[in-house]
Computed example of a mutant assay.
Amino acid sequence: MFLKTLHLKQFRNYQEQRVDFVAPKTILLGNNAQGKSNLLEAVELLATLRTHRIARDRDLVRDGENISLILATLQREAGISDLKLTLRRNGRRTVNLNSENLRRQMDFLGVLNAVEFSSLDLELVRGGPDGRRNWLNTLLIQLEPVYAHILQQYNKVLRQRNALLKSYQQSELKVPPKELAVWDAQLVSAGTKVIRRRDRALQRLTPIASNWHASISNSTEVLRIKYLPSIPLEENEPEQVQQAFFTKIEQRSVAELHQGTTLVGPHRDEVELTINQTAARQYGSQGQQRTLVLALKLAELQLIEEVVGEPPLLLLDDVLAELDPSRQNQLLDAIQDRFQTLITTTHLGSFDSQWLKSSQILHVKAGEIFPG
C-alpha cells in the first residue's frame, strides 16, 4: 500500500497543509516542536483511530478551532481509497470512506495499515503493563478490526461493573448486590473474546520477533514473549476460558467488594518480555531494550503484511537518534523499499548517500511543510 496524499486542516499546529508523497521513503526534517510528529500522528489515526500519545480529540484540534480534518488518498492493490476523519473539539468524531459517511467507525479500520515506532516505545520494555496492553491492542486492531468493537464492549462493561462495586463499597449494605451476577456474565463474555485474541496474536508474533531479535543480536540473545492473563489460560477454547474466568472472579469476590473495583480480567493482563530468561524490564541494558523494541516493531510489520497481504506503512518518529549505528543499519536495511516509510529527524547525519538519493526530503517549520 502507498499513501499518495495527506491533507490536514486545523490539526494540531497545522492550519492547512497538503503533502504529496512521491518516493518510498519520506524524511521529515526540522527542529523539535515544529509539527513533524503531528503529521505521523495523523497517519496513525487513519490506521487505528488511536494515537500513541493517547490524546483527547480536543487536543488534536488546532487552538481556536472547533473541527479538524485529516484527509488521505491511499493506493492499494485493490484500488484507490479516499479517507476522511473529522475530529471535533466538543463532539463525536466521524469517518468517511470514498465520500460515504460510515455509521460504524469499525468499518474505517483496516483500510490503511501502519506501524509507528517512536522513542516513546522504549517504555514498552521499561514501563508498566498498561503500555504493553495498549501496544498489543493497537496491533490487534489492525490484524482484526472487529477487535476495536470487542475492546470497546469490554471497557463499557468494566466501567459499569466498577461503578456498582464502588457504590457497594460506599454503602452500608452487608449483602452484595444481586445485579452483580449480571455484570459478571457480561464481563466474562466480553473479556473472553479479548483474552483469546490477545493470546492468538502473541502466538503468531512471538516466533517472528524472536527471529528478528536473534538476527539483530547476532544470535547472542534469546527473546521470549509470554502472555500472562489475569486468569489461568491452559487452553484457548471459549468454554475453558470462560470457566476459568468465573472461577477467578469467585476467588477474588471478597477483595473486589472490599476494594470497590474489578480485579480480574484483561485490563489486568501482562506481557512478559525476557532476554536470556531474564526479565528485560529489570535487567536489560539500554542497548538490549532498544534491540528488543526494534525486534518487536519489525515483527509487527511482518505479521501485518502476512495477515493483510500488503506491506503496511512504517512511521519512524525521531527513533534513529535513539539507536546506535549498528541498530540503525539493521533497521534501514530491513526497510529498503519494501515499506513506505515516513521518518522524522532533526538532521540527516544518520542516513547514507544512497538512502538520501532515494528519499523525498521535506522541511517542517511551525506547522508548514516545504520541499527539500
Rank of each mutant, 00 (worst) to 15 (best):
F2V: 05
K4C: 04
F11R: 07
Y14I: 06
Y14A: 08
Y14W: 10
E16C: 03
D20K: 07
F21V: 05
V22L: 15
A23P: 01
P24F: 07
K25I: 11
N31D: 14
N31Y: 01
Q34E: 15
K36Q: 13
S37I: 02
N38M: 04
L39K: 03
E41L: 12
A42I: 08
A42T: 06
L46Q: 13
A47H: 08
H52G: 07
A55V: 04
R56A: 15
D57T: 10
L69S: 10
A72G: 13
Q75K: 15
D82Y: 11
D82V: 02
L83I: 04
G91T: 08
N96I: 12
F108Q: 11
V111C: 12
N113A: 11
D121V: 04
E123P: 00
L124V: 05
R132V: 11
R133A: 05
L136N: 05
T138G: 13
L139Y: 02
L140I: 12
Q142I: 03
E144P: 00
E144C: 05
Y147A: 07
I150Y: 11
Q153A: 08
Y154F: 15
Y154A: 04
V157F: 11
L165P: 10
L165D: 10
K166F: 07
L173P: 00
K174Q: 14
K174A: 12
P176A: 14
P177Y: 06
A181Q: 13
V182D: 10
L187Q: 07
V194K: 07
I195C: 04
L205W: 03
T206L: 02
P207N: 09
A209H: 09
A209W: 09
A209Q: 12
N211M: 05
H213D: 04
T220G: 01
E221Y: 10
E221P: 09
V222R: 12
L223W: 08
Y227K: 01
S230F: 01
L233V: 00
E234N: 11
E239K: 10
Q242W: 00
F245C: 00
K248H: 09
Q251Y: 04
R252P: 01
L257D: 11
H258E: 15
H258D: 14
T261K: 13
L263N: 09
G265N: 06
P266F: 01
D269W: 00
L273A: 04
L273R: 07
T274D: 02
T274R: 08
I275G: 03
N276V: 02
A279P: 05
A280F: 03
R281M: 09
Y283E: 12
S285V: 03
Q286C: 02
Q288G: 03
T291C: 13
L294D: 10
A295G: 08
K297S: 12
L301R: 05
L301Y: 02
E306L: 13
V308G: 02
V308E: 09
E310S: 14
P312D: 11
L315V: 05
D317I: 05
D317Y: 07
N329G: 00
D337E: 14
R338K: 15
Q340G: 07
Q340D: 12
T341W: 03
L342K: 03
L342M: 14
T345W: 02
H347L: 01
H347E: 14
L348V: 10
F351G: 11
S353V: 12
K357V: 06
K357A: 15
S358H: 14
S358C: 03
S359T: 09
Q360V: 08
I361N: 06
V364E: 06
V364Q: 10
K365G: 01
F370Q: 14
G372V: 03
